[in-house]
């Protein structure tokens, strides 16, 4: 089949239907339901940043007040550190989103978007791993900061140690289950996403985008 023939056929593709389709899109530009996915991502990141900044002030205040008391300062510091990391990650991603100018060459933008995706997957993975480990410090700080309760006095140090150990066990079990059975979790998109995040499949996928772009850009 001659390429010139295909090219001519291609140029005629769409015809009137294509013109009508595009006219409708042009007319619809003013509709308020039109939202871009990038805007949604940006909004999500702004919300994440504002929420984590709010929590950061709370944990920072708690840490300042209890800095001299080691049993409260340590869980407070763990929480504050985790929230501070979230603030930094959200801010970095927002900066990366602001640098995306779609009128730049395809390879440049796709590489930048792949970078953004890797960073997003990494921060989601870090949150998934941190959650079961942080719930014990959260319980100690929350009970003390909000209700004035001392969980060390109420349940004793062994309770704290056992709960932390339980968090580690839950995390290890979740990673094992995600690696072994995660591919089967088709019925729930969220379950699949969590499983892929814990098993590291999301990161592999995100890094593959980088590889694709680099291979394409490399001189053949």
């Amino acid at each position: 089949m001659e390429f010139d023939v295909l090219q001519d056929l291609w140029r005629d593709l769409g015809g009137k239907a294509g013109a009508k389709f595009e006219r409708r899109l042009l007319d619809g530009l003013g509709a308020d339901h039109v939202r871009s996915n990038m805007t949604r991502l940006e909004l999500g990141l702004w919300l994440e940043l504002i929420a984590s900044l709010g929590v950061c002030f709370l944990t920072g205040g708690y840490l300042f007040e209890n800095f001299g008391t080691l049993r409260y300062a340590i869980p407070g510091l763990a929480l504050h550190g985790a929230v501070l990391t979230m603030v930094v990650l959200s801010a970095r991603q927002l900066y990366a989103v602001s640098r995306v100018d779609y009128s730049e060459p395809v390879v440049v933008i796709q590489r930048r978007l792949a970078e953004l995706r890797v960073s997003r997957v990494r921060s989601e993975g870090a949150m998934l791993i941190a959650a079961p480990l942080l719930w014990t410090p959260l319980a100690i700080v929350g009970a003390h900061g909000v209700f004035g309760l001392d969980l060390y006095a109420a349940f004793g140090a062994p309770w704290i140690v056992v709960n932390f150990g339980l968090g580690v066990a839950v995390l290890l079990l979740a990673i094992w289950l995600s690696r072994r059975y995660g591919e089967r979790a088709r019925e729930s998109a969220l379950a699949r996403r969590v499983a892929d995040g814990l098993a590291g499949r999301s990161l592999v996928e995100a890094q593959r985008l980088f590889t694709d772009v680099d291979e394409f850009a490399a001189e053949a």
Partner: peptide
């Protein structure tokens, strides 16, 4: 540049969503 960047990004996002 704009049209292709958007198309490729949306297509990749859909592929990830589809995987889920």
């Amino acid at each position: 540049r704009i049209a292709l960047n958007v198309a490729i990004s949306v297509s990749r996002r859909a592929a990830t969503r589809f995987r889920h």
